[in-house]
């Protein structure tokens, strides 16, 4: 493991760079909705790079199928959880910090903490 093999090391390096940038973005961006951009977008390519490098290093078929399953699951669930968090936060009146328009709320009134939460089922 001392020698440098570009096929394995470059994906791992790119992936860990993106994971670190995502963490920096999560720490630095001003509000929850902007932080969701960092955590949902950057981590898909970041983990994809690291899993690719790991699959090329662990050549066993068992490792390959498990890594492929984790990667597929990540690609499916990351946008869904970002969507669920953004929806829950907006409808439960966590105010976004905007410099542009808010077209969800045309009246210019954000949901207030006393509002009745919506009773319909968002997940299905």
């Amino acid at each position: 493991m001392n020698d440098f093999s570009p096929l394995r090391d470059i994906p791992i390096l790119i992936g860990s760079f993106f994971v670190l940038t995502a963490a920096v973005g999560v720490l630095r961006f001003p509000d929850l909705y902007s932080r969701l951009h960092a955590s949902s977008k950057l981590v898909t390519l970041g983990s994809a790079g690291i899993f690719l490098g790991a699959a090329l290093e662990l050549t066993e078929a068992a490792a390959f199928t498990r890594l492929a399953a984790i990667l597929l699951f990540q690609f499916l669930t990351t946008p869904l959880s970002a969507y669920l968090i953004a929806q829950a936060a907006y409808l439960r009146a966590l105010p976004p910090r905007l410099s542009g328009p808010d077209e969800w709320n045309q009246l210019g009134r954000h949901p207030q903490p006393g509002d009745e939460p919506p009773r319909e089922d968002p997940a299905d």
């Binding site: 920096v24 961006f29 951009h37 950057l42 390519l45 410099s99 969800w104």
Partner: peptide, 26 residues
């Protein structure tokens, strides 16, 4: 587009004063 999005957000996260311009569109 996924690669483009990653590079764009990475640049925003590392820049000293990111021009975020957040908004909600319909």
């Amino acid at each position: 587009e996924l690669s483009l999005a990653n590079v764009q957000v990475a640049l925003l996260a590392l820049r000293p004063r990111p021009p975020l311009n957040p908004m909600i569109v319909a």
